[in-house]
Design a protein around this nucleic acid. Structure first.
Lengths: 131, 131
DNA sequence: AATAAAACCTAGTAAAACAGTAGGGATTAA
DNA sequence: TTAATCCCTACTGTTTTACTAGGTTTTATT
């Protein structure tokens, strides 16, 4: 139940973009501000772009930008991209073949919903407001 | 954010013990009923015993038993033993040296509390009742 | 047209974590 | 004495993680 670096770094980077919402930021600048590896961030940004959370401009004076306003993006949206859908077990629907006569699956299902509901209730804007 | 096999198997095994609360069950029987590896379960039971969640009787006709009644044990108690305290990030108190000017740490702290509160609210008894 | 800044993309890789297995020792009822 | 059972440590193959490397493409600027 540990969060991956992808998730932690990714959220930080998205917050950095949020603080500069409306502008385009080169990855080098984001890496500098967050003290994260530029090469590693690049991979995360590739995923975030394909998920249409961020957009990009190529070439000189290009960079990345948030597509939606920070108050309209939830932490859940971002993390689901970076954390394989935030699923905490592989058989989330209890369709595994185990001869388990107790409903532990229900626990995992409910925990999954709790986590997602909570993370969906937090906006990126609220994070940078607190900081 | 995946749950480990330790956690999944451990909870199943504890449920199995709960269904036979008041009796002593040999590990071989638990492994059989849950279709889990006896050798692996042994490790989990070592930890659960040291955490005083289960007790054991050695020798012939020995085995393991739940120390507390199933309605007095929460899923959280069990999982914290098996999942390194259920901490989702290493620096849960935000004491890492990162030059992060946004409060993503607050998110992880709150999520940590959400998860623990939720799991503490579920008793082992309620799981076997549903099954 | 040349250059340099930037995104884009794939593949490799060392280290850690995971999910067990192996093998023996200690205890105890029968 | 035996066999069942818990106790404990160490080892091991696999997978995941957290990157790094190295190149390609695009584009503003000179």
């Amino acid at each position: 139940m540990k969060l991956s670096s992808k998730a932690r770094y990714g959220l930080k980077a998205v917050c950095e973009l949020a603080k500069n919402y409306g502008q385009t930021m080169p990855l080098s600048q984001i890496a500098l501000n967050t003290e994260l590896s530029e090469g590693y961030l690049e991979q995360l940004f590739l995923a975030l772009r394909k998920a249409e959370i961020i957009g990009s401009v190529r070439g000189v004076s290009g960079g990345y930008f948030l597509i939606k306003a920070p108050q309209n993006i939830s932490v859940g949206e971002v993390l689901r991209v970076l954390e394989d859908g935030l699923q905490i077990v592989d058989c989330i629907h209890g369709n595994c073949n185990a001869k388990c006569h107790c409903s532990t699956h229900d626990v995992w299902n409910k925990l999954y919903l709790q986590i997602n509901n909570f993370l969906d209730s937090i906006t990126i804007q609220s994070i940078i407001d607190e900081g």
